[in-house]
């Protein structure tokens, strides 16, 4: 009897994350998907009704018959959308790589710091979250602008003769993304590096392995779960990023977040913007699921 109860309890525990997924991911996704199959009208809400039992059974089927994939075809017809997807992915990938290069030494340093100091260092990584994200991105305008702090400092040092134009360029976007998402990279890296058994490195050194080779043969492979988690946590939100390119980027920066915004707000075309969002989701989810499967299989083989 008791065993049955624990079985039921463990089932219930599993149900909670699935319920979470259903309510906060699947249902909103289905609503967006539904809108992506309709067309625009001047009404409230501004798209043709999709599923409605208000007009009876025949009305329901009439609405169903009006659904179309035209909005998805439209995305292929104009090169704008494909270019925006590609440029978003490139910007996100470059930013993720830089974040990784900056974040790894930080996480490594934290993991190797004296145990008494680690909670403080961890606190310092989380500290920026206490100020609003928007305010922090705005602050970068003040730092990067031609008369800003960075240029004044470099001019004072005599490194440059005239102000560098950084604001409103791709460089500014990279700086903004790396800065904003750095904690998301450092925290999982730190978690996996901290667990590492450093006697392994000592053993390698005893056996005559030079430090750099020891890093690539031992530290890095053991940190891979943290690397993967960190990269996904940075890459996924960076692809759909809207605020950073809007504030720091130039007008020439084409990103899917901005394209989606102008479809939704300027064109008032909820169906096309929904289609853009669905495709974005597919672009992100499919590789991630594939990647996870590969990883799970690799882990099973290890055992």
């Amino acid at each position: 009897m008791k065993r049955v109860a624990t079985a039921v309890a463990s089932r219930l525990v599993i149900i909670i994350p699935y319920l979470w997924l259903l309510v906060f991911f699947l249902v909103p996704f289905l609503i967006v998907f539904k809108i992506s199959l309709s067309g625009t009208v001047i009404a409230m809400p501004p798209y043709t009704p999709v599923f409605s039992f208000a007009d009876g059974v025949s009305g329901f089927f009439a609405n169903l018959a009006r659904l179309s994939i035209d909005n998805y075809l439209w995305l292929v017809e104009d090169a704008l959308y494909v270019n925006a997807y590609i440029s978003s992915i490139v910007i996100a990938a470059v930013s993720t790589a830089i974040t990784m290069l900056v974040g790894f030494p930080i996480a490594y340093g934290m993991a190797r710091a004296p145990a008494a100091l680690r909670p403080t260092l961890l606190m310092l990584v989380i500290l920026p979250f206490w100020t609003s994200f928007l305010i922090r991105v705005y602050a970068w305008i003040g730092i990067l602008k031609p008369e800003g702090l960075l240029n004044q400092f470099l001019l004072w040092l005599g490194v440059i003769d005239e102000p560098l134009i950084i604001l409103n360029t791709h460089t500014a976007i990279f700086i903004g993304i790396v800065y904003s998402y750095l904690p998301f990279m450092v925290l999982p890296l730190y978690a996996s590096l901290e667990k590492m058994d450093y006697s392994l490195i000592e053993a390698a050194q005893d056996l005559g392995c030079p430090p750099i080779a020891a890093f690539w043969k031992i530290t890095f492979p053991l940190a891979i779960p943290g690397v993967v988690a960190g990269c996904l946590l940075v890459f996924i939100p960076a692809v759909g990023e809207f605020v950073i390119p809007d504030l720091l980027g130039g007008s020439r920066t084409l990103m899917i977040g901005k394209t989606l915004w102008s479809e939704f707000f300027n064109n008032r075309d909820w169906p096309v913007s929904s289609a853009v969002a669905v495709v974005l989701l597919l672009i992100l989810v499919v590789p991630i699921m594939y990647f996870q499967q590969v990883q799970a299989r690799a882990q099973e083989q290890d055992r």
Binding site: D78, L80, N83, A84, S251, R252, T253, L254, S262
Partner: peptide
């Protein structure tokens, strides 16, 4: 008009 504007702004 929006498409025209995107061409002007982004060059795409």
């Amino acid at each position: 008009i929006t498409r025209l504007w995107t061409r002007v702004v982004t060059g795409q």
